[in-house]
């Protein structure tokens, strides 16, 4: 990296002028150094995001429990396992490349790519589960309200007053009981009662909590699951009434931001691996594989911290 002392004299071809002898300043290749410097910036980036999450979460008055927001710890753990496996395979690809076992290196690289894609697939499944319950990072798609108060009640009333919903409810009430599942029969009755409570002139604070509990209940513990059904939003997917999850908006914001940025980094890593698969994976390109591997291990590292912070805390 630095030039050492230049000496004036004749070089090999007999030309005049200073002869510069370059020695590397650090015992690693440029590519590896640059990759590590880039990883330092990534450490800054994720430290900012994770640090803010930690501070926001522990400074919050209320924070939803994982089963309140349909977060599954086993799925998160499985994702961790998938990513750890992909880290192992990329290391094995590097070893194979250095040992000039090209096709083996390619196999391990392909395995890394597949495991990474599997991780993304599971993430997409998790996101779909959130979206189906009306948990989005922001309004207007996000249905989350913080408190079961009159503002929530008026939002429920607004939704119930929409023409499309009125149509659907009319059609639902018109169907005979024989056509419906038991859940739908109970749900239909409860929806009617909720509608009366929401539209009624006389409303108590407790009514709002009852409505919220009917629309989407917050179970006591994960094992309890959905004590009295999954709620009206689950029985009737077209309903999409506003829901109450205390602390839920902040949770959704931080969850989607952290996992979204992490997923973007995973996608970039997969693109890199895809391009590397087009190369001849021998010792000549072992440096490239090493650097791509460093990036991938860092992505795994971030997930190792994300998993407990998001899922287990």
């Amino acid at each position: 990296m630095n030039a050492s002392a230049a000496s004036v004299g004749h070089d090999a071809h007999g030309h005049h002028g200073p002869v510069l002898q370059y020695q590397p300043g650090l015992p690693l290749s440029r590519g590896k150094l640059i990759m590590w410097l880039f990883l330092s910036t990534e450490i800054m980036f994720f430290a900012a995001l994770l640090g803010s999450y930690v501070v926001l979460r522990f400074g919050a008055a209320v924070w939803p429990k994982p089963h309140h927001v349909h977060l599954s710890e086993p799925i998160g753990a499985f994702n961790t396992f998938v990513l750890i496996c992909s880290s192992v395979t990329v290391v094995l690809a590097l070893e194979a490349a250095r040992a000039n076992k090209r096709s083996l290196a390619k196999t391990w690289m392909l395995a890394t790519l597949l495991l990474g894609s599997f991780f993304l697939g599971i993430k997409a499944y998790e996101y779909a589960a959130k979206f189906s319950h009306g948990i989005y990072p922001a309004a207007p798609r996000g249905l989350i309200y913080e408190r079961p108060d009159l503002y929530y009640g008026s939002a429920v009333r607004a939704r119930l007053g929409e023409p499309a919903i009125i149509e659907q409810m009319k059609e639902l009430n018109a169907r005979p009981e024989s056509e419906l599942t038991p859940d739908e029969v109970t749900g239909r009755r409860r929806l009617q009662q909720v509608r009366e409570m929401a539209m009624g002139a006389d409303q108590q604070a407790f009514d709002m909590a009852v409505i919220a509990d009917q629309v989407m209940p917050l179970p006591d513990d994960a094992a309890g699951g959905h004590g009295h059904g999954g709620g009206l939003n689950e029985t009737f997917p077209w309903l999409q009434l506003p829901i109450v999850i205390p602390g839920g908006n902040m949770w959704a914001s931080t969850y989607f931001l952290l996992t979204g940025f992490h997923a973007i980094h995973v996608i970039v890593g997969l693109i890199v691996f895809g391009i590397l698969l087009l190369y001849d994976l021998g010792p000549k390109h072992a440096g490239m594989i090493e650097n791509a591997g460093l990036y991938w291990h860092f992505v795994d590292l971030v997930w190792i911290f994300l998993f407990p912070l998001l899922y287990l805390f």
């Binding site: 913080e146 004590g227 205390p246």
Partner: peptide, 22 residues
């Protein structure tokens, strides 16, 4: 507008009330 632990309690009460008067 902020959520409080009291709101969580309220929702839990609503849940147990719903279980009793099913």
């Amino acid at each position: 507008h902020m959520a409080r632990p009291a709101d969580v309690l309220l929702l839990e009460q609503a849940a147990s009330a719903a279980e009793e008067g099913a």
